Amino acid sequence: MNHSARMAEAGIVLPPVATPAGAYIPAIRHGGLVSTSGQLPFIDGALQATGIVGSTVTPEAAADYARTAALNAVAAAAQAAGGIDHIASVVRVVGYVASSPDFGGQPAVMNGASNLMTEIFGEAGKHVRSAVGVAALPMGAPVEVEIMVALR
Rank of each mutant, 00 (worst) to 15 (best):
I87V: 14
D44G: 12
A81W: 13
V145S: 06
V134P: 13
F121T: 02
D102E: 12
A77W: 07
E123S: 06
G104Y: 15
M148R: 08
A78K: 13
S100A: 15
T36M: 03
V74S: 13
P142Q: 11
I25R: 15
G31H: 07
E144N: 05
P41K: 08
A136H: 05
A77K: 11
I120V: 03
L137V: 05
S55Q: 14
P101Q: 09
M148E: 11
A80T: 09
A5P: 05
T118W: 06
G22K: 04
I43F: 01
D85F: 09
E146Q: 09
F42V: 10
E60Y: 07
G45L: 05
Q48A: 11
M148I: 15
V34L: 09
M139N: 01
R6W: 01
G140N: 11
A73N: 11
M139E: 03
I52S: 13
P101W: 07
T36S: 06
A78P: 14
A23Q: 11
G22Y: 01
A21R: 10
A69L: 13
I25N: 09
A66L: 08
V17K: 11
T19A: 09
R152H: 12
E123C: 03
S4C: 00
S55I: 08
V149T: 06
L40K: 00
V90D: 01
V53L: 02
E60M: 14
P26M: 04
P26N: 11
V34K: 15
T19V: 11
L71K: 15
G45E: 06
A108P: 07
Q39Y: 06
V132Q: 04
S114Q: 10
A21I: 07
S37H: 15
Y24Q: 06
A75N: 01
A124Y: 14
A108H: 06
